[in-house]
Design a protein around this nucleic acid. Sequence first.
DNA 1: CGATCTGTTGATGCCTGTCAAGAGGGGTGG
DNA 2: CCACCCCTCTTGACAGGCATCAACAGATCG
Lengths: 233, 233
Amino acid sequence: MLTDLQPSPTTGNAALLRVVESGPAGLVKARCPEFAGIRASVVRAGRDAVLVAQADPADYSFLVISGCLRTVRLMSDGRRQIGAFLFPGDFFGLEALNEHTFGMEAVGPAILRRYLRCSLEAYADRNMDFARRLRTMSAKRLRSEQARVLALGRMTASERIARFLLEMAHRTDASGPCIELPMSRADVADYLGLTTETVCRMLTQMQREAIIAINRSLIAIKDGDALAALAGE
Amino acid sequence: MLTDLQPSPTTGNAALLRVVESGPAGLVKARCPEFAGIRASVVRAGRDAVLVAQADPADYSFLVISGCLRTVRLMSDGRRQIGAFLFPGDFFGLEALNEHTFGMEAVGPAILRRYLRCSLEAYADRNMDFARRLRTMSAKRLRSEQARVLALGRMTASERIARFLLEMAHRTDASGPCIELPMSRADVADYLGLTTETVCRMLTQMQREAIIAINRSLIAIKDGDALAALAGE
DNA sequence: CGATCTGTTGATGCCTGTCAAGAGGGGTGG
DNA sequence: CCACCCCTCTTGACAGGCATCAACAGATCG
């Protein structure tokens, strides 16, 4: 059963792993020519590498090139909230003020570009198209945060999981109905305001109802309509 | 007991009520000279007036002049989430895309300025200081949404209430330790992802513990340290 | 091949939601 | 001006969903 869910050897993660040799928290920097006329450096991060710590001064913004990252906020007693999962093309820290309220960590091996925030600001001052792009991106981020407020405030565990699966299917440009979740169940739980156990239970329940099929980090959507119905709205 | 919590006759709401004569959903428009060089009209709204319906095309942005408003999102089965409470100086709809995902309603009598979004965009293109202000405002809104994600995802009912009281004390420039909540308990509940009953219970519990004193919409903070401790972080 | 980590499942408890009823105020109409 | 109605707020009893605690299986890695 589920033999069609084996991870393909062409995922590319193996290659990334080879690049990062300094271990779990390893960071390697290199020069990168430019992007939209702005200087940037390339950052490579290994699994669980902390690229930005919570309350760090917001000197830099990041653009994800490959891999997956999470933004994290920790409470003093250890409770954790994940603000967002970042995929290639996503930005982090564009709309920061003086300091980052969320940290950023690599879920798995990842590559990003790092920009000086003040240079982005300066470029936005000179280039009104770029300024518009910044506003549009902020609007999208805000919209997704508002969707999460609704989800965390008013939705049940199964609704949150269903929405999450649909979101992931949409964002990880999955050609087929099969999603590979790069993050752990604990990450999913902290993203959705649940516990690891509840995430597992909801997933297995959906599997029992033949809505999805699960094989570790691979999830196949068997009945998209039923999943959308669970997600509500 | 609590005679010091009587609402003062100088609240100003009485005057507002006199202005709005067209009833609960009344809207009156008038010309307003300008703001930052941008044409705007003045909108007066009575209690529970719907100024923007959910999924309305996002043609306009609003600046609150007086009163209090709420942004609302409704699910098909009636569950309601309040996105934010807006006070004088707050904007609504600046960072909208094609349509508003949240509606906007007046909590009580309110006055706002209404701007054409395209004219704000055009002004931002010409004026980089204004563009910067827009970015800063977006950043602040995003930050507050992120704080709510943390609250709704990982905080208990009492923590949410405590944070809410502190937030209100901070935003309604209360000179003393006494807050007047313009919104109903149901609004508070839908803002915090709780029920009316839970909000009441937490408030009375805090009153029993001599942290606050309650008289209808008036809340006096008796022990700010204890409240801050309850709020965590 | 053993240690460790992640994922899964089960038993139990608690926080908060649900349902219900009553109290108190404010507005309206007689 | 007063009585009535309605709405909001409050409190109680109970239930349910999710968290907590615990144990185990499987995978990964040294």
